[in-house]
Design a binder for these strands. Sequence first.
DNA 1: TTTCTAACA
DNA 2: TGTTAGGA
Length: 132
Amino acid sequence: MSEKELRRSLAVLPIGTVMKLTSLTARQIRYYESQELIKPERSDGNRRLYSLNDIDRLLEIKDYIDEGLNMAGIREIYTQKQLEKQQIKEQLTKSLTDDDVRKILRDELLRESGFGQINQASNSQPPLQKPF
DNA sequence: TTTCTAACA
DNA sequence: TGTTAGGA
């Protein structure tokens, strides 16, 4: 996470500030939390602390409600969005794996060409038993 | 003073 | 969602 993202996710705002920044009532803000649309931190004597990201999300929630969505509908949007992120992560991991495979194939070709001894030190892959 | 939980004329 | 009670 970049420092910028860390700052935006730092929960330091009390509900009173959030009310002014979003024009929502404390009742609404707490209700959206009960619907799992936001997850503010807690501290002090059980007081809620919100981050700038929470502010953005609350403003988005207002728009979604204006568009006629209910709590469940909005929640689906966010849960689906986090699933997409998870899939992107998996794809990235798969991509890196393919790159490793490419390195291995390259070294196999070098070995078969009789240049096995000039293996690059950058490749930490152990030699294969049976090159094809 | 501000915020919290729970509950409803 | 509003509003209020009773505490922290």
